[in-house]
């Protein structure tokens, strides 16, 4: 458990790293931190504008005329949390290679910094989405109390998978090239933009194999349908994530001796 002590000693470094990351990202842009929210929202607007006519009729159980936009935003918040953490974990060692070569510091701080800054991003997005919901006449119910559990599982899944592939990516850089493509395909295999109901019959059992499906469904249940998400599904993903995290730690331990040499 020495890594917990290390993280405690380096808590200040973790905090400044997260703050510096935002500073560095926005230091030369006019709108600064607003870009964090504007980017995903722009995507929502584009999809809503293009697809709402096609899809709006097929959203049962919700009366609001902006139902599709609400559905889209709820899924986007969940997916962007996963995608940001996953993408950053995938390159976390390569991005920090220079520092790792020059200074000895606990590497366990790196995923914590990634999660910290992604979480700040995501919470800002979440708050702005809730405000937009209110403007569209859609309120948030007590189902939101389930959200922290869903987010924890989402983060664990993204970190576990991301770090495992992130370690491999140091040695096999093709992984970093191919993952954005796979992620794109994965996104379209997850009901974020479309409704599950529009899928042709028989695809239901395949979509159940998608680990992001229970997560995005939970976001939909919490925000769109205002009901308790399927926590069994979330629990299963939680177990898978724990396994992935252990795998990532194991692979990191085996690789760490050679990692700095190839960075």
């Amino acid at each position: 458990m020495s890594w917990i002590r290390e993280l405690y000693y380096y808590r200040y470094f973790i905090r400044t790293s997260i703050v510096n990351e935002f500073r560095a990202r926005f230091v030369r842009s006019r709108l600064g931190a607003a870009w964090m929210i504007l980017n995903p929202l722009a995507q929502v607007v584009i999809f809503a504008f293009i697809l709402s006519e096609v899809l709006s009729a097929k959203l049962p159980g919700i009366e609001n005329k902006y139902a599709y936009a609400i559905y889209l935003m709820a899924g986007t918040v969940g997916w962007s949390l996963f995608a940001e953490i996953f993408n950053r974990c995938l390159t976390v060692f390569i991005d920090n290679g220079n520092t790792m070569k020059k200074l000895a510091f606990p590497k366990s701080t790196l995923p914590v910094i990634v999660v910290g800054s992604a979480l700040v991003n995501n919470l800002l997005l979440l708050v702005s989405v809730i405000v937009i919901f209110a403007m569209l006449g859609h309120t948030v119910s007590s189902a939101i109390l389930w959200l922290p559990f869903v987010m924890i599982v989402t983060i664990a899944f993204a970190v576990g998978l991301g770090l495992f592939l992130g370690v491999l990516n140091v040695f096999i850089r093709d992984i970093g090239q191919i993952m954005p493509i796979i992620l794109q395909i994965w996104y379209w295999f997850t009901p974020v933009v479309y409704m599950e109901a529009i899928l042709p019959k028989g695809y239901g059992k395949y979509i159940a194999l998608n680990p992001m499906y229970p997560i995005i469904s939970a976001y939909h249940n919490i925000f769109v349908f205002q009901k308790t998400p399927n926590m069994t599904g979330i629990g299963v993903i939680g177990c898978i994530s724990a396994g992935l995290l252990l795998l990532a730690v194991f692979v990191y331990r085996r690789a760490s001796a050679e990692m700095v040499d190839v960075l």
């Binding site: 200040y12 400044t16 790293s17 510096n20 500073r23 560095a24 230091v27 520092t99 020059k102 200074l103």
Partner: peptide, 25 residues
């Protein structure tokens, strides 16, 4: 350079680097 971040100021980098060495604010 100790892995300074080029976009941050000297002062901010000092805090960052000293943090990397394990010092508190």
């Amino acid at each position: 350079g100790m892995g300074f971040n080029p976009d941050l100021t000297g002062r901010q980098n000092v805090y960052h680097s000293a943090g990397l060495m394990g010092y508190t604010s």
